[in-house]
């Protein structure tokens, strides 16, 4: 049977259209680059946003693409932060080396714990991931000869990036570094979610039983993407450690895991930009709110969460994606 040439071409066009860069994506990254040049006085908070955005992006790979809920994603953030911190303290040298080691360490821990989330419903996964983060936090607390325990890891010396860019007080190097890492990680994530592998992840998210019946090796895919997400979370942790030259136990905090979940949910899961947009919103809101009511700003974050859920997080997302579909249909017409 000779396949319908036109239909094949149509299918190819349609699939290529899904992976194409859209104008707003380019605008988003141009704006990010512009912020580096135009907002030098805001580099410190922008660096924090980029780091949080990367952390949320890593969670999006789990929650948004393969449907794994985690209440302990800070576990990998923390491992990355401590690995980078220890490298800076004991080995010194190039931050990129410390970064690579941190990513590797977080990926290793991710791989090792990924087997714990293969089985079980959401609730089991929530508690297992939470337990892993608590366990690692406890380990960092107890092993104080290495980590400094509750006092935090002190005495980090972070060498200039590439031997050229000193980490300055104004966060210029920090933001540049964080933004470049974020962009590279984003490119990797984007490439992967648009691949056959990424498509199979979405299939697993929607219906793991059916995915397996198509011949997809569900467990292997979950292990793979969990490890990748852990590596990216570790990258975010390493960035935090290197740009602030300090690591404390709060990198493993439940609050951090909860915050990143919130950031992702605010921005919307499952399209990669949610974590980034959520991070911008979250940090700015936190900045404004804590200027008004320092110490109590989590109250407002909590309120946002409650309202968001009651108003229907999913429905909100559906409405947005319906809008996006319509925009695509009208914009994509030849």
């Amino acid at each position: 049977m000779s396949p319908d040439v036109e239909a094949v071409a149509g299918a190819r066009r349609w699939l290529a259209g899904r992976a194409r860069w859209r104008w707003w994506e380019i605008a988003f990254w141009l704006a990010a680059a512009a912020s580096f040049v135009l907002l030098p006085s805001r580099h410190l908070i922008l660096a924090e946003i980029a780091i949080l955005g990367l952390f949320a992006l890593s969670l999006d790979l789990l929650l948004g693409y393969v449907g794994i809920v985690s209440l302990g994603h800070a576990a990998f953030f923390g491992v990355g932060a401590y690995a980078a911190g220890l490298m800076a303290k004991h080995v010194g040298g190039e931050p990129l080396l410390g970064f690579a080691v941190a990513v590797f360490a977080a990926a290793t821990v991710g791989l090792a714990t990924s087997f714990l989330v293969l089985r079980g419903a959401d609730l089991t996964r929530l508690m297992v991931t939470l337990g892993v983060a608590m366990l690692l936090g406890e380990a960092a607390n107890q092993w104080s000869s290495l980590t400094g325990g509750a006092d935090g890891l002190q005495g980090m010396t972070v060498a200039p990036l590439l031997g050229l860019f000193e980490f300055d007080l104004f966060g210029r190097t920090a933001y540049g570094y964080a933004l470049v890492v974020l962009f590279l990680c984003f490119l990797i994530a984007r490439r992967i979610v648009n691949s056959p592998y990424g498509l199979s992840l979405r299939a697993i998210r929607d219906n793991p039983l059916r995915a397996a019946a198509l011949g997809i090796a569900v467990d292997r895919r979950i292990v793979g993407v969990y490890t990748l997400a852990a590596a990216m979370a570790g990258a975010a942790g390493a960035l935090l450690a290197q740009t602030t030259a300090f690591v404390s136990l709060d990198v493993f905090d439940f609050n951090r895991s909860a915050d990143v979940l919130l950031v992702l949910v605010i921005g919307g899961a499952g399209y990669l930009y949610g974590g980034l947009i959520g991070a911008v919103f979250f940090k700015i809101a936190a900045d404004l709110l804590s200027a008004q009511t320092p110490q109590y700003w989590h109250f407002w974050i909590g309120l946002i969460l409650v309202v968001l859920v009651l108003a229907g997080r999913d429905r909100l997302g559906e409405r947005l994606s319906a809008l996006a579909r319509r925009a695509r249909l009208t914009g994509g017409a030849p």
Binding site: L15, R18, I192, S195, P196, Y197, G198, L199, G215
Partner: peptide
Amino acid sequence: SERLGHGGDVWRVVG
């Protein structure tokens, strides 16, 4: 894709 062994491709765009 799965049957042809391409299902695990991470670095190739779908289609």
